[in-house]
Amino acid sequence: MTENKTTLFYPVINPLECKACGRCIAACPKKVLRMGEELNARGYTFALYAGEGCCGCCNCFYTCPEPAAIEVRKRTED
């Protein structure tokens, strides 16, 4: 039954593809993204997800200029 299901949204960030422009951070209504300090192999810092709080709006995906840097998924569990 639906009332027993929990739905979890979360972004999947590919650290290698992030160029650290910060557009996703500005676009996130839940403020659950931030810029990390570590550098990726291409020399950029990259966005990090707080681990919870994503509402699945996909704002970060649409505002990100890089095709492979971020996507949003949904997990439904009984």
Partner: peptide, 8 residues
């Protein structure tokens, strides 16, 4: 069940 909501 996992589902991709948005990807390129």
């Amino acid at each position: 069940m996992e589902q991709v909501l948005c990807q390129t």
